[in-house]
Write a protein that binds this DNA or RNA. Structure first.
Lengths: 234, 234
DNA sequence: CAATCCATTACTGTATACACATTGATCTGT
DNA sequence: ACAGATCAATGTGTATACAGTAATGGATTG
């Protein structure tokens, strides 16, 4: 009997909430829900092959993550999309990453810093490409790597939450002409500060690096709206 | 028929989750659950007069807030208490407040800044007191007021989450001799920077102000442990 | 024709039932 | 006495039922 073929004969799933959470989070990250739209629990439950109970538990989690708003007797509604919201997220990200960079310079071992630099050098060898999803993924990984060096799991956790909330916009931002050019040099300068363990200068650099993106909040929001409403429903 | 006596004749509560969330969060904030202890769903549900369904929904929210950890098939467990965890929270708080202070200096109107200063002056007129809960509350309000001026709701939200996670320790910290003395002067210096809209200097001050507390993480954790395990069960 | 009212439909909120997993105490063989 | 097996008791995970609330659409009225 193959293991992957059948989900075993298990009478109980026992991890439905996690599965629903991951699936719905993915939908929410990509704005598959229209902004402000009510999320129908039975529909979602049916589509995912579970009952409403685990769906509601997952939605409660997602609400605390910032992906859903909840109105009593009116259920869960997908997050909105506004320039202010995007700007605020970028500003929070900048705050976390600046502080984390300074801690990383204090706490990262030589080996860890060297490893981080090596990974960046490999990833930046992508050369010219049009796979923006891959570029965005590498960018996110770069920033995560630095915050990991801060040895502050709470900051890392908070950053991951923010990242999932802005991922949709970050991709748009990186695709735009404005950011494409500068990103490499900015990362290079940040990496150089990390090598020198210059937390003050590097912290300022990374803060500005991110703030530059927050300045485009209006543009990426417009483009995001277009993608949400013009894409094929699939 | 009195209104408060009976919860009306309503057949459905319709806000059980909110009530449970608030009640259990209060317990978690004050460490009424022993660190790591499994939270018994039926027991909690019975005590609160509801069924397990809203209890589990509330616990799922609290898990995302950082008050509970969740292990499949083993339910929800109360958060741990460790010096590293406390330190990490203070560091995250410092990161948010520093950035928010700079934004507050840019974005707060003269009226808002004046109002914030006035509130602080009033609150600092408490004089010598031993009502540490009130002192801690005023302290938290002071910091919240500044972050509010940043006009960044996401930062404010994140800070409120962190605040609820460290409130237990903050009170201990403020009660200790170490912090009691310096706090007033530090706040005064920060307020003066806000008046001058000096975001850079004030940001550094507030960051250091908070980092000073993070340096006591080990001490407040020890004292916290003692209070958790030695207090009367009530 | 527009606005309002009302009945019907659709959806949410909570309780309960039951299957499965874990836990821990008792038993067994050595 | 003790490590491992066994089994009952406890507790979690999900589905379902039902009560109550909002949303919808058509009839009614000005």
């Amino acid at each position: 009997m193959q293991k992957t073929a059948k989900p075993k004969k298990t009478g109980r799933a026992a991890d439905s909430v996690e599965k629903v959470y991951d699936a719905v989070k993915e939908l929410a990250v990509e704005y598959r829900f229209k902004p402000g739209e009510r999320v129908n629990e039975v529909e979602l439950a049916t589509k995912l092959g579970v009952s409403r109970t685990p769906v509601r538990e997952a939605l409660n989690r997602l609400a605390r993550d910032g992906f859903m708003s909840f109105v009593p007797n009116r259920g869960f509604h997908a997050r909105d999309i506004t320039p202010e919201g995007v700007r605020e997220l970028y500003e929070l990200r900048a705050a976390i990453e600046r502080a984390a960079f300074r801690l990383a310079c204090e706490r990262g071992t030589d080996a860890e810093i060297g490893e981080t630099i090596a990974i960046w050098q490999n990833n930046s060898n992508l050369g010219p490409t049009t796979d923006w999803a891959a570029v965005a993924e590498a960018d996110e990984a770069f920033h995560i790597a630095i915050v990991t060096l801060s040895k502050n799991g709470r900051m890392l956790n908070a950053l991951e939450g923010v990242n999932s909330l802005i991922r949709f916009f970050r991709r748009i931002d990186l695709e735009s002409n404005r950011r494409r050019s500068g990103t490499y040099d900015e990362h290079a300068a940040i990496i150089e500060c990390l090598r020198r363990r210059d937390g003050d200068v590097g912290g300022e650099l990374i803060e500005r690096h991110i703030t530059l993106s927050s300045a485009h909040a209006v543009d990426v929001t417009k483009e995001g709206l277009a993608r949400i409403f013009f894409r094929r429903p699939d």
